[in-house]
Structure formats: structure tokens, C-alpha cells
């Protein structure tokens, strides 16, 4: 096989890890609270700026800065839920979608106002691993590994802890869980915090590979929604599989054509698949 094609496939798998992490967070929010955070990628952008300032400007060690960013974005998730989502929990789903879409606008403009439109880099370059003739960047490998660990940790949290089980139960039946003595408000807040923390983790991994600027959310926000819908909104395993399918289309499409064409292919694939399997890839 062509060595460059192999490299593209491997990079696709590594990209898939980060996309899967993003899709997991969004699916968790949707599954439990039944809202789509259109501004999810913008929360990641906020996290990337946090790391940039804490590490690149104030000189905090990268690990502590990353940890602070995860906590910070988790806090943003809670704020988003309290200020925007909870007042309109009862209104039409499309209004909730649009309210978070307004937040997308707000966060982008706020970042432009505070930081300008410069591309900023944390100035940390990780080595490149040479594997035969294949070059793999260490930061991508790290991102892939961390995304997998994050996914496993989330799985264990959801299946082993009382809170996680309560979250899954609420996703299945909202009314009955209230009768069972589960405080819905509290579960929603915790879910928002966990969803935010996953966005924060994604920010830590992405900031190693990409420069941060106010509009970076637009470059992976749409693809994350497509992945979630493709896997079946709220279906975490489906989202996980879909992330790798989409990242392969992007990687191989980018190898044969150009990066824009590869995204066009991915979106067209998504539209066509929505018609063939409207309930998602893994629907029965």
C-alpha cells in the first residue's frame, strides 16, 4: 500500500479520537438534558484561550494549566445551563437550539473583543515520531490516547457510580425518576459540568495541535454535530463509531483531493446517510 495513504489513514484514526471525545460530551448533554449545545465548540475555544493565557502568558506548568482549563470550562458549562438553558427548559426544542446558537455568536464576539483576531500559539512543540517511513506527530498520539482514556472514564462513571446511573436513568424516563427521588435539577447541573469538562479536555488536546483564534470553533463544530446525529443523537457508542468513520472520510478524501473537498464529501455522506438511516448508524 502507498505509504502516504497509510499515513493519512493513521492520522485519520488519531483525529477520530479527538472528534469522538467532542461527540461524547455533546451526546451526554443531549441524552440527559435533551438540548443540543450549538456553542459546544466555542466552549472548547474558551478552554484553549484559558490554557494559552495560563501557560503561554502567566507561565503556569502545562499540566496545571490544563487541569485549570478543564475545571474552568466545566464551570462555563454550569453557567450556560443556569443562565441560558434552565429558563427555557420547557419551551420548544428549536428555541433551545437557537439560544445556544446565540451563545455561539456571543462567545465568538467576546473572544474577538478580549483577544483580537490574532492566531495564538502556546509555543509548545512536541516531537514527531518516525515509524519506518511514517511520520506521526506526538501531540496527535497524545490526543488520541487521552481521548480514549476520557471515553473509558466516562463509561465507568456512567455505569459504576450512583450519579452516572441516575443520569442514564433520567435520559430514559424523566417523570418517573423524579418520583424515585432523583433531583433532576442537580443531575442536570452535574451533567452540564461533566459535558463542559469533556470540552475542556478536548481543548487541552487541541491546543497542542492548532493555533487558537476566536473562530476556531467553526472549523470543528459543524463536523461534531454531524457525527452526533450520524451516530444517533444521544447514542454514545454510535457517536464513537461515527467519529472514526467521518475522520477516515476526511483523511482519505484529503489525501486524494483537497481538505475542503474532503469535508464536502463528509457532509454529503452525512446527508445521504440521514436519508438511508434516519435514526443513526447503529439504529436497529
Amino acid at each position: 500500500m502507498d505509504i502516504f495513504l497509510l499515513e493519512a489513514i493513521i492520522n485519520g484514526i488519531l483525529l477520530g479520537g479527538v472528534l469522538a471525545l467532542l461527540a461524547l460530551g455533546l451526546n451526554l448533554i443531549f441524552g440527559v438534558i435533551d438540548v443540543v449545545w450549538i456553542c459546544y465548540a466555542e466552549l472548547v475555544m474558551c478552554g484553549m484561550y484559558m490554557i494559552f493565557w495560563l501557560h503561554g502568558f502567566f507561565g503556569w506548568p502545562i499540566l496545571i494549566a490544563s487541569f485549570a482549563a478543564i475545571l474552568g470550562v466545566a464551570g462555563l458549562g454550569v453557567l450556560l445551563h443556569l443562565l441560558v438553558i434552565s429558563p427555557i427548559l420547557g419551551s420548544a426544542p428549536i428555541n433551545q437550539l437557537l439560544a445556544t446558537g446565540g451563545m455561539l455568536f456571543f462567545l465568538q464576539s467576546l473572544a474577538t473583543l478580549l483577544f483580537g483576531t490574532d492566531f495564538r500559539n502556546i509555543g509548545l512543540r512536541l516531537p514527531i515520531i518516525e515509524f519506518g517511513d511514517i511520520f506521526i506527530s506526538y501531540s496527535r498520539l497524545l490526543a488520541f490516547g487521552a481521548a480514549l482514556i476520557g471515553a473509558v472514564a466516562l463509561y465507568l462513571f456512567l455505569s459504576r457510580t450512583y450519579l452516572g446511573i441516575a443520569m442514564r436513568a433520567i435520559a430514559q424516563d424523566r417523570e418517573v425518576m423524579g418520583l424515585m427521588g432523583v433531583d433532576q435539577r442537580r443531575i442536570y447541573l452535574i451533567t452540564s459540568a461533566v459535558g463542559g469538562a469533556l470540552a475542556g479536555l478536548a481543548a487541552c488536546l487541541l491546543v497542542l495541535q492548532y493555533d487558537v483564534h476566536p473562530f476556531i470553533g467553526l472549523s470543528f463544530g459543524p463536523i461534531t454535530f454531524m457525527i452526533c446525529v450520524l451516530g444517533g443523537l444521544g447514542n454514545m457508542i454510535g457517536g464513537f463509531v461515527a467519529a472514526f468513520v467521518m475522520s477516515q472520510i476526511i483523511a482519505i478524501g484529503g489525501y486524494y483531493f483537497s481538505i475542503e473537498i474532503s469535508y464536502v464529501l463528509a457532509f454529503v455522506f452525512f446527508i445521504v446517510l440521514m436519508f438511508i438511516r434516519p435514526q443513526g448508524l447503529l439504529a436497529r
Binding site: F105, Q108, S109, L110, T112, L114
Partner: peptide
């Protein structure tokens, strides 16, 4: 960005 922030 101030105008857009208020707008958002």
C-alpha cells in the same frame, strides 16, 4: 467585537 458581543 463589542458591537457583536452586545448583539449576541
Amino acid at each position: 467585537g463589542a458591537a457583536n458581543t452586545i448583539y449576541g
